[in-house]
């Protein structure tokens, strides 16, 4: 295999991937010629990793339909991850990471290489950017009138549907990301949302970003109603929607600072809604503070 180093820019952070045996479509829009900013990690694909003598310190709960991540720690303090696409499936990727999440090597096991690569990239991104004001969120996000509007909610709540309703009703609305955008609290206190190479089932991989206009937590209901949330409830929504696998206590300060900064800068709403046009009209009118098109 020819040695190759690719550099990617996601949410204005840079990372490199070396010796990748294929070119993933989702990463393509983020490929850049050089690293001309802050590099947060480098990953190298290797044929094998030495067997390590290490302890399992955590495994995510093995719920049907959800991936399983196992975390081991070596005596050196370095970490070792194994990812499985579903409970009972074979391990799709193994990754060894130094304790600062800067340098990683991984093996693709041949069963679900794209899945394994993206899972490991997301883990690395989440951990290595934690102290830098970045959060990976579970959200569908649209841009409208120059701002990003983020819809949160548990899987199956209708986040994607609500984004689609905005696109149908408000000309100029664009889907920025349908599942895992990155949110950043910038040094001047403003909050921006960025497209990413990870977007769930929707292939929406955009090298674009926008200032966040509002964050809306969705809940299914037999009616449409929108309520502004107090800071503390906004924080609870962020906790629920920020990448749920956060086992490292030493990264918690960074995550908290980011979430607190977002709560201070961005209005939060709860939308109890039906999957209909009226829900989108009510939401848009309220969060945007402007008249709707007739």
């Amino acid at each position: 295999m020819e040695s190759s180093l690719r550099t990617y820019r996601v949410a204005d952070f840079f990372f490199t991937v070396e010796d990748l045996p294929f070119a993933p479509d989702n990463l393509q829009p983020f490929l850049v010629p050089d690293c001309d900013g802050e590099k947060i990690f480098s990953l190298r694909i290797v044929k094998e990793l030495p067997q390590c003598d290490c302890d399992l310190i955590y495994r995510t709960s093995e719920e049907p339909g959800f991936p399983v991540i196992s975390l081991f720690q070596l005596t050196s303090g370095d970490y070792f991850f194994e990812v499985q696409p579903l409970p009972g499936k074979p391990v799709a990727g193994r990754m060894a990471v130094d304790k600062d999440f800067k340098t990683a090597k991984m093996v693709l096991c041949g069963t679900s290489d794209r899945y394994a690569l993206n899972s490991c990239l997301m883990l690395l991104f989440t951990f290595s950017s934690a102290s830098k004001g970045a959060l990976e969120m579970h959200s569908s996000v649209v841009t409208y009138d120059g701002r990003g509007f983020m819809f949160l909610g548990k899987s199956g709540t209708g986040k994607s549907t609500h984004s689609q309703l905005w696109m149908r009703n408000f000309p100029g609305t664009e889907l920025l990301n349908d599942d895992n955008p990155i949110v950043r609290l910038l040094p001047d206190g403003t909050v921006r949302v960025y497209g990413s190479p990870w977007s769930g089932k929707t292939p929406c991989y955009k090298q674009k970003n926008a200032p966040v206009g509002a964050i809306v937590s969705l809940k299914q209901a037999p009616y449409n109603k929108i309520t502004k949330l107090a800071v503390i409830n906004g924080y609870a929504c962020l906790m629920e929607s920020a990448s749920s696998f956060r086992p490292f206590k030493h990264l918690a300060d960074g995550w908290h600072r980011t979430m607190e900064g977002i709560c201070a800068a961005v209005p939060f709403y709860r939308l109890e809604c039906l999957p209909d046009d009226d829900a989108a009209l009510l939401c848009n009118k309220t969060v945007n503070g402007k008249q709707n098109p007739a």
């Binding site: 310190i57 800071v231 503390i232 924080y235 030493h250 908290h256 201070a264």
Partner: peptide, 29 residues
């Protein structure tokens, strides 16, 4: 171990952090 008091925009919350409280998905005001 793992419960932390955090300031939040002039208020106080307690959250579970790290592996010891990784399954505590609540927040106390």
């Amino acid at each position: 171990e793992g419960f932390t008091l955090r300031p939040l925009c002039g208020e106080h919350i307690v959250v579970g952090e790290g592996l010891s409280q990784v399954n505590f998905n609540k927040m106390l005001s």
